[in-house]
Design a binder for these strands. Structure first.
Length: 480
RNA sequence: GGCGACGUAGCCAAGUGGUUAAGGCAGGGGUCUGCAAAACCCCCACCGUCGGUUCGAGUCCGACCGUCGCCUCCA
């Protein structure tokens, strides 16, 4: 089965065929860098990271662009989020944006999210935005009033095609006070006039001002990916108005389609509610990392489908951590035995187990990136591999290598939940040697049947997070 | 009020017309072990409620109940 993806635009699963064979151009709405990233950001960018990784696994050359919004998001009060943050932190807005941009990448790195190929900053693309707005004015889709420019939604007949909304409903249901300078309550701002006190402002044909919220994504995605491009991703909560407006700006200006496949991921919930500052259930990634390994958080996220909402509880995260340990435990065993394995071809039985696992994994991923099922396939394969390892006294190097390779590709390259080196493999340091010394000493005690002392050593190491396993070929240990 | 999504075991979560409803965690019973741990084996759901369509529905349709999202900034 070839890759199928659910396209929000058509509301159905479609065969994925990129515009240019072998290449995928993809854009995902990035963060507004005025605050620390939270678990919800974690879910979104892990979800799209796996999509990028799987496309690459399939052999596509992916150009992945994700913007950094450092200007342009307005609060209800009309205040810029970045400026509000800058006031709070007593910093220059650009200093604040830079600080949170770095923290964002730091958090994403820990979640093993691959960096986008291009991370364009909105503030660095003001001239391109101005040009684009000019084009919209010239074509009659936008109008200037008092130094601000608005997009006239009534002129763009496809407005609402993504979110399934009609203009009448929008006007009727408008909950915000309507600026009287807009010709139509549903019109949205492309450029806002800045009062002199506004710190972030630029010169434009309409006077000093700053760009509206939606224009940056239209301009930067097309600048780096062309028009149309293959995939546009983002959270469902941005379907309207943000993505709808992006489409309007892009397609009205050029008459060409914008993005071909729209992928929207579901929200992360805390005990059944959307994570939100005002609800007091806001968990930053940094806070979460204090309690859970970033890989565990990543694994937990991938146990749900990207389009579904995902409910976070302490219990569920703990459970995910134990599950991941089982998977890593097998890789650990394989790598350990690989060190002393005899040369030899891979056993046909092993190749059969691996082939079936790989087939099921790909089949699940091909169906709209079904990571939960792909992980299930991995668990079932793991059980069979373990059974085989238990039975095989001297597995050949070829067999072990084949197993390790497949885990590296599926759990490592695609899902990104397999660290390059497991904890125990990293240490050639003093701690490792001391642990080995204790383990060896305990082995001698066991040979002498001094169970009590041997058990004490085991228990006390366990309290330090070092778990011992006595097997027929000696004692091994694992760092939990 | 309008638009949309969802409701599957103690918890998380796949499945979306057809033999025994994935997987993980927890729980119970075993094998292995000096005892453990790890691993492995076995057990553990009639799919929100009611009605309908169908030879056959968790899977389609309708109503109701409940939860959530969007309509305003949000990943």
């Amino acid at each position: 089965m070839a890759l199928h993806v659910y396209n929000s635009l058509s509301r159905q699963k479609e065969l994925f065929v990129p515009l240019h064979e072998g290449h995928v151009h993809m854009y995902v709405c990035g963060p507004t860098v005025y605050n620390d990233a939270h678990l919800g950001h974690g879910k979104t960018y892990v979800n799209f990271d796996v999509i990028v990784r799987y496309l690459r696994y399939l052999g596509y050359k992916v150009l992945y662009v994700q913007n950094i919004t450092d200007v342009g998001h307005l609060l209800d009060s009309g205040e810029d989020r970045i400026i509000q943050g800058a006031r709070r932190e007593r910093m220059h807005p650009m200093q604040l944006a830079e600080m949170y941009t770095r923290r964002y990448f730091r958090d994403m790195d820990r979640l093993n999210v691959l960096r986008p190929d291009i991370s364009p900053r909105a503030s660095g693309h003001i001239p391109e935005m101005i040009d684009w707005i000019q084009m919209l004015i010239e074509k009659g889709y936008a109008y200037e009033v008092n130094g601000s420019v608005y997009f006239s939604v009534a002129k763009f007949k496809d407005y609402g095609k993504l979110s399934g909304r009609r203009l009448e409903e929008l006007r009727a249901g408008a909950r915000v006070e309507v600026l009287e300078e807009k010709r139509d309550p549903a019109d949205f701002a492309l450029w806002k006039k800045a009062d002199p006190a506004h710190i972030m402002q630029w010169t434009s044909p309409w006077g000093r001002g700053y760009p509206g919220w939606h224009i940056e994504c239209t301009v930067m995605s097309i600048k780096y990916l062309g028009q149309p491009f293959d995939i546009h991703g983002g959270g469902v909560e941005n379907k309207f108005p943000h993505h709808e407006c992006e489409i309007a700006q892009a397609e009205a200006a050029t008459g060409k389609p914008f993005a071909r496949y729209w992928l929207h991921n579901g929200m992360l919930m805390i005990r059944g509610e959307e994570m939100h500052k005002s609800l007091g259930n806001f968990i930053t990634l940094e806070q979460a990392f204090e309690r859970w390994d970033p890989m565990v958080i990543r694994f937990f996220i991938l146990q749900g489908h990207y389009r579904s909402p995902l409910d976070v509880t302490d219990e569920a995260l703990d459970a995910a951590g134990r599950g991941l340990q089982r998977l890593l435990g097998t890789v650990r065993t394989v790598r350990r035995r690989l060190a002393s394995a005899a040369e030899g071809e891979a056993a046909p039985q092993v190749l059969e187990i691996l082939e079936e696992g790989r087939r099921r994994f790909e089949e699940s991923m091909d169906d709209d990136f079904g990571t939960p099922e792909a992980i299930a396939a991995l668990f079932e394969m793991t059980r069979e591999v373990n059974t085989w390892l238990n039975a095989e006294r001297a597995p050949s190097k070829g067999s072990l290598q084949a197993i390790d390779d497949l885990y590296r590709r599926l759990a490592g390259d695609v899902l990104g939940v397999l660290p390059e080196k497991l904890e125990e493999e990293m240490g050639a340091g003093l701690a490792t040697k001391l642990i080995q010394l204790l383990v060896d000493t305990r082995s001698k005690l066991r040979q002498a049947k001094q169970w009590e002392l041997a058990d004490t050593i085991r228990d006390e190491l366990a309290e330090l997070g070092i778990q011992l396993q006595d097997g027929p070929e000696g004692t091994t240990w694992t760092l939990l």
